[in-house]
Amino acid sequence: MAFFEVHNLSRSFGGLKAVSNVSFTVTKNTVKSIIGPNGAGKTTLFNLISGFLPPDEGSVTLETRQLEDLSPDKIAGHGVSRTFQNLKLFHGMTALENVMIGRHTHSRSGFLSGMLSLPWTWVEEKAIVKDSLEVMDFFGIAHLADSEATSLAYGQQRVVELARAMACKPDLLLLDEPAAGLNMKETAEMGKLICKIRDKGVTVLLVEHDMSLVMNISDEILVLSYGEKIAEDSPLAIQQDKEVIRVYLGEDDA
């Protein structure tokens, strides 16, 4: 039984088949990349997996749990965390507070205990701060803790979002173009961070346009084109796949 399995997943918008009959599995503790031209359906696939869109058909299974009918917050609670292609940080909150939200599923103070400020909630709150700072330290951004997240440099914001997603202590992490908008040095840094995440035992599903990054850190690559899976193999084999080359040569920006 695969650690993570997507089976026959489909989703259309009107007549457009954004994701069409896509199936694949991901082995625990590996990095699998999904590549494909703009509009291939990569983000839609992530939205289907993370519950932001209901699939027309198909199933999504993490270990033994069916995810396809669950809401995003429930899916997060079952150990699937994600970042967004267009950064979605919480404005008006510090970087630390952003990361602290990542601890939400691992804490439980509710309306009543919060209003009454029961002593156990102070203990919990302290633990949330400590865990969040640890994650920020892991990504080398602990010094940014008190800055307002959305006022940070773009590259730093990407890392804060990554830290927030990791604060959930996910089993599966979905990264939607984490290097988009980063310069070469920052992209290389991002690659290192993703490897560090994998080394922590997290399984990573990565959508990325930067081919050198993808080829360097992926264990396996899946290629999407017009919503369909056209190839799935090791990075080396993908680089030589005729169909993939054809799809990419037809594109200006790969």
Binding site: F52, D73, A76, K88, M93
Partner: peptide, 10 residues
């Protein structure tokens, strides 16, 4: 701050 991100964090 961002409803989608909040949901994604559970």
């Amino acid at each position: 701050g961002s409803e989608d991100a909040a949901k994604a964090m559970g």
